[in-house]
């Protein structure tokens, strides 16, 4: 199949992208690497009149440090993320989870920002961004605004990015000393989406867990923070991980589909959270 016709606009700056979006509004779709969008266009599940290609906007690519944060350009490809020294050093969880995204060819084209803005709850990176308290920098005609991950993912394939806005970069707090992390992805074949995924980052101190952040993939219409688990892990000894992980499904609304009914997903969330946190805690 071939996509339906659309007008193609290549933006060379954020301003150009924002201007194009302001002009076309709802009828426009932003394209980053196109690895989610192009298959949707081909299957004619999406009919934008205008595609605004931001893939070559230089100011949206690359990774830099900004004090206690890493700033990851939205157009940084998955491949670049995996191999980026700053990300590996300060936010290794992102690199680890990104290695599980799709396959090498898709990772050459697909971008970090594109995956977040697509906001598929089965995607691996939204839960990671959520667990790491990332902040999304969004540009629109009124200037830039920053939205915390918690307020970014609104619903299935829906984010706080408005039709005339574009996600420019993502600010991620660096994980400092004492942090361990793990992304546990459960899927049936290499290419398939996560049935459930768990992103865990844990800071140990004096043999106990001082702080834990846990994000869940595919346990609702948005990525979910397992706050019950985090709360139970706060100050807990390593022996209590299992007990804390039992709260992983609290407050989730897991989907039922071909790969698992909700009760099975809830069970998986508990098992995988235990495994992810245990690995992150280095025990």
């Amino acid at each position: 199949m071939i996509p339906a016709q659309f007008d193609y606009v290549r933006a060379s700056s954020v301003d150009e992208a924002v201007a194009a979006l302001a002009e076309h509004g709802d009828e426009a779709k932003v394209m980053a690497g196109g690895q989610s969008l192009i298959p949707l266009l081909r299957l004619r599940l999406s009919y934008p009149e205008v595609v605004v290609d931001v893939g070559r906007v230089a100011e949206m690519a690359g990774v830099r440090e900004d004090g206690a944060h890493l700033v990851i350009g939205a157009m940084t490809t998955h491949h670049e993320v995996i191999h980026n020294e700053l990300i590996r050093r300060h936010c290794g969880l992102i690199a680890e989870a990104t290695e599980t995204v799709a396959d090498p060819a898709v990772r050459h084209r697909g971008t970090f920002g594109g995956a977040l803005a697509h906001a598929d709850p089965a995607g691996d990176l939204p839960a990671v961004a959520l667990a790491l308290d990332a902040e999304m920098v969004i540009a629109g005609s009124g200037g830039r605004r920053t939205v915390p991950a918690e307020e970014f993912f609104l619903d299935y394939l829906q984010t706080a990015v408005q039709p005339d806005e574009v996600l420019v970069e993502v600010r991620v707090p660096k994980l400092g000393e004492g942090w361990g992390y793990r992304y546990e992805k459960f899927h049936r074949v290499a290419q398939s989406w996560a049935i459930v995924g768990v992103a865990a980052a844990v800071r140990r101190s004096n043999g106990t867990i001082a702080e834990a952040r846990v994000g869940l993939t595919n346990m609702g219409s948005t990525p979910v923070r397992a706050s019950g688990v985090e709360e139970a892990l706060n100050g807990a000894s390593l022996e209590r991980i299992g007990e804390a992980a039992d709260r992983a499904a609290e407050g989730t609304s897991a989907p039922s589909d071909l790969n698992g009914k909700a009760d099975y997903r809830e069970h998986l969330a508990r098992v995988l959270t235990r495994r992810a946190v245990t690995a992150a805690a280095g025990s």
């Binding site: 049936r188 074949v189 290499a190 290419q191 989406w193 071909l258």
Partner: peptide
């Protein structure tokens, strides 16, 4: 046909 494409019909790849 719910498994209407290669996304949902799971043909194994090399790691599988």
């Amino acid at each position: 046909l719910v498994t209407g494409s290669l996304v949902d019909y799971l043909v194994p790849a090399a790691p599988d």
